[in-house]
Design a binder for these strands. Structure first.
Lengths: 356, 356
DNA sequence: CTGAAAGCGCTAACAA
DNA sequence: TTGTTAGCGCTTTCAG
């Protein structure tokens, strides 16, 4: 079965190849009746335009790059799956491109990549969404791009957000509602803007509850399991240690839980722990981790959508934001829960939208 | 900076474009001196052939597909990274393609994909390496492909293996050396050939040690965390329960550990647990999981290598196999270890090559 | 609204 | 060993 070409379609529809081209590219100036003839011929022949030929002849490449440098495999896979879905649906192809955000030549490399592969645009994911030099370069070169979870909303038309701050506030309020007053916080990596936003939600909730923020309950992490262990060790080593710890992501939360276990603290009886992201790990540790589910895949779909629109010069609506939601599992419980032995630890999980 | 073309290179080198083409394609019949002139011109101009043009004009597409349907994100990322590395190095591009191995139309879809995207070849990863219909189709259509960790070595020239069975035997012997005699086993998904091989290693070790295999110590899992929980619940509920459990993968091991915790069993004092794969999870649960490190990325590189050679018609050497190694962490300890309270639970890990 | 002709940058025959 | 000439299948002018 040899590949069918535009000529065969044109012959069957009894039009010129240019008309077929107009139809497949949704160009204007085609009478509806001829359009139907062409569409019919395309269907009948199972015709699919050859991307290489389009690329070679046209200005567009139908190629979009996905840039990432994120240690969380599940994050990358989710992003990739979402972006792939949208791109393929619009007959764009996704070029996967692992990066090193600390590489001093990153900008030059990306510029090169875009030039040589003739990419029509780029999707940046954290921490690349935070890379100001890269972003400046893209703007300057007028290379279309979108950012997933950038640190601020200064470029909203090219960004997809989630309500990190709100969700984090909700989670903190949930812990407060359990009676916790000494709630610790392990910060995410400082290069990772969106993760920083989460801390603000924690502060919001404390302020709202009229609880004084104590610096000693906060510690710096770097998004890794190991950094979570280190921070938790410092936090839990204090005389007046927290009864709950909220972490900037799930890996750090897992690290904190490990330390708690090693210190002989029961979770959640002696210590509640909550994370952020809802990576698979969260459901696979013991006890299962209360966390905030990030709609990674949906964000990636939206980002791809935004990018394709941008490439086509279409206008976009308002600010793109997708809600994250609390997932209450077994790592959180009442403060001084040692007393309430009947605390259930069912396998299930319940989503909470409003944690008053 | 407009893209430099083959013509400009030819002009600078004072040869015809065909000669330049010969050089970039490593074709024979180019005098060394002219080759150097051309190479020099290429360097000076920073020339890189346009892939779309090559694809359109030539028989090859310089495009390779990566097929996967694996729930483990870290597995996919590792595979992808390894394959990408090799492909890009040979100026091939990798087309990522998530599949559903249960989809009855999979064969047709893949055939279509290969036809329309004009893929030069495919890399199959488990459980697609087990998909006999797919493999039969590829053979029939003479589509080049390689398999990562196929269930048997019946097509060794197109396969990359690891020593699952040996490693699993070693791990079992390690557990035996700790004094365990009642070692349970949670089987991996039956559709997942390579995982089945691991079970054989367990049997090998038992046989070698002269220990009678007991069917009651074995249970069926399906690679998921949840299935590990279920199997462990059955295994640990027995009157004469195992003192150690070896699992077909790390997710199931994590599930088994959760059940043990819920039953109030201490790990490794009351129960040793070992996994297989060394996914990030293994280092992030408590206690950290003794497991077998699979060289996923290297296997993917080797697979890509094999595929590119196959595409070019180059011969390949012998059987491709890369060693997996034991990683001893904290989830395993002496049988009846309740007595030896001094069991160290240091954070570090030690690799063991020979666990006699 | 539609079509004819001229490439895009390269490889594939075939000559020389 | 090298060069010439056609295309690959499409988009892009530019005319009708």
């Amino acid at each position: 079965m040899r590949k069918t070409t535009i000529e065969e379609v044109a012959a069957l529809a009894r039009v010129s190849i240019k008309t077929v081209s107009r139809v497949i590219n949704d160009e204007p100036n085609v009478r509806e009746s001829t359009r139907l003839k062409v569409v019919d011929a395309i269907e009948r022949l199972g015709y699919r335009p050859d991307q290489s030929a389009r690329r070679l002849a046209g200005a567009r490449s139908y190629l979009v790059g996905l840039l990432y440098d994120n240690p969380s495999a599940s994050y990358v896979i989710d992003i990739q799956t979402g972006a792939l879905d949208r791109c393929r649906a619009e007959s764009y192809e996704l070029l996967i491109n692992p990066c090193n955000y600390k590489n001093p030549d990153l900008c030059a490399e990306i510029e090169n990549l875009v030039g040589h592969a003739r990419l029509d645009g780029l999707i940046l994911t954290p921490p690349l969404s935070d890379h100001q030099n890269l972003i400046a370069m893209l703007r300057e070169q007028e290379i279309p791009f979108v950012m997933v979870a950038p640190p601020d909303d200064s470029d909203a038309v090219r960004s997809v957000f989630t309500n990190d701050r709100e969700a984090s506030c909700e989670m903190t309020r949930y812990l407060l509602s359990l009676g916790h007053e000494r709630i610790g916080y392990i910060l995410g990596h400082p290069d990772h803007g969106a993760v920083g936003t989460r801390y603000l939600g924690y502060r919001d909730a404390l302020a709202h509850a009229g609880i004084r923020f104590q610096k000693g309950l906060m510690d710096q992490g770097y998004n890794s399991f190991r950094s979570g262990e280190d921070a938790a060790r410092r936090l839990l080593g204090k005389k007046n240690r927290p009864t709950a710890i909220l972490c900037g992501n799930d890996e750090m939360a897992a690290g904190a839980m490990k330390v708690a276990h090693e210190m002989g603290l029961s979770i959640p009886e002696d210590l509640s722990v909550a994370g952020f992201d809802d990576v698979p790990l969260a459901g696979q540790i013991w006890p299962s981790l209360t966390t905030i589910r990030q709609p990674i895949r949906e964000m990636a779909e939206r980002a791809a959508d935004l990018l394709l629109k941008q490439i086509r010069g279409e206008a976009v609506s308002g600010l793109q934001s997708i809600r994250s939601t609390l997932v209450i599992r077994d790592s959180t419980g009442p403060a001084y829960g040692g007393l309430s032995v009947e605390h259930k630890r069912a396998g299930g999980q319940k989503e909470v939208t409003d944690a008053g």
